[in-house]
């Protein structure tokens, strides 16, 4: 794989009253072409500082970022623009420009001072729009597009810059779930098909776990952990990074859940999805499933119902909601 970006002993942070405030240090990691890498981390760990430093917008406090072997912060802006492109969170106010014209702005590092586009430029613009799956948006005014459509166009614009590496900072933040999934799939496809390195910072743990080829996990304190999402789940780095009171990472479900002091237990019988979701509902109320419990909840199919047995008494519920509210109102004893 082609090594595109190298972070060498990088220290990031900011300078306040001539004092260096280091957010994270000793970051050494490579970014390869053809991979979608997600940068994850809790708020305040320095994700945006790291993104700004890598994209050349901010100087590192120590160490260096190399782009194809050259120090990124020494490159002239125009030269850097031919190698590295950005997509940001902010909603772009492109004015009265069509999506096509916005994507064409991506050719700016390659055009002369008049910004005139050659046939080759047009070909690259059209290819970028096609790769982003935005053919039907091309002729529309940017102002008419939805947030998700805009971000697709901004991705196409970043692609039209013909960079080696694309850096995307929280680009899915304002999008709804289907749009987020769509953008992540698009980025995966772009990384794999074009061989570009794509680095995306996100808050969306679930989506990052599912889509990233590699995760950069930045916990508070700045000790960057790198690996396939699954590696980081298995070695506990994930739990560690997000360790905070009241929230726990469940390695089995791959999701976070609220800590509960499980005081009550039930036995659960049944099968399939019904049982799985009943278990979830019980756990939300701090009830854990145990073989030794006195109370038994039977999950029955066809018709769906929930039967709760305790000694000689038994009660039936039509829905999980009825069951849980019964338990909450203490109409049944566990």
């Amino acid at each position: 794989m082609k090594k595109i970006l190298q972070l060498e002993n990088l220290s990031i942070g900011y300078t306040q009253r001539k004092q260096h405030k280091i957010v994270a240090k000793d970051i050494t990691v490579d970014l390869f072409g053809g991979e979608l890498v997600c940068l994850l981390g809790p708020n305040g760990a320095g994700k945006s500082t790291l993104m700004r430093t890598i994209s050349g917008a901010q100087k590192p406090l120590g160490g260096q970022v190399l782009l194809e072997g050259k120090v990124i912060h020494d490159l002239p802006a125009r030269h850097l623009a031919k190698k590295l492109s950005l997509v940001l969170t902010e909603r772009v106010q492109g004015g009265l420009l069509t999506a096509y014209e916005i994507v064409a702005l991506g050719r700016y590092p390659h055009t002369t001072w008049t910004g005139k586009l050659t046939d080759k430029d047009h070909d690259i613009i059209q290819w970028s729009i096609e790769m982003a799956g935005a053919n039907e948006l091309a002729g529309r005014m940017l102002a008419e597009l939805s947030d998700g459509e805009r971000q697709k166009i901004m991705v196409a614009r970043a692609l039209a810059q013909e960079p080696e590496v694309m850096i995307l900072d929280e680009v899915t933040a304002f999008l709804d779930l289907p749009r987020r999934v769509e953008i992540m799939q698009l980025l995966r496809k772009l990384a794999h098909q074009t061989g570009k390195a794509i680095l995306l910072s996100t808050h969306d743990m679930d989506l990052a776990l599912r889509s990233a080829d590699r995760l950069w996990l930045l916990p508070k304190g700045g000790d960057l952990q790198v690996g396939a999402p699954e590696d980081l789940v298995l070695n506990g780095a994930f739990e560690h990074a997000f360790a905070s009171e009241g929230v726990a990472f469940n390695r089995q479900s791959g999701a976070f859940q609220m800590y509960q002091s499980y005081q009550r237990t039930v036995q659960l019988s049944g099968k399939g999805e019904g049982m799985l979701w009943t278990k979830r509902a019980l756990e939300r109320d701090g009830i854990t499933v145990s073989e030794s419990a006195n109370t038994i909840i039977e999950v029955q199919n066809d018709p769906d119902r929930w039967v709760l047995r305790n000694g000689n008494t038994s009660q039936q519920f039509e829905t999980i909601y009825d069951l849980m509210s019964g338990i909450r109102r203490e109409e049944v004893t566990l």
Binding site: P76, A77, R78, L84, Y108, P109
Partner: peptide, 19 residues
């Protein structure tokens, strides 16, 4: 004219386009 067009996207984008 060209840099002003890039500025329509905002300053960070304009900078990332080498302006």
């Amino acid at each position: 004219a060209k840099p002003l067009n890039a500025l329509l996207l905002g300053e960070r984008y304009a900078h990332s386009l080498g302006i």
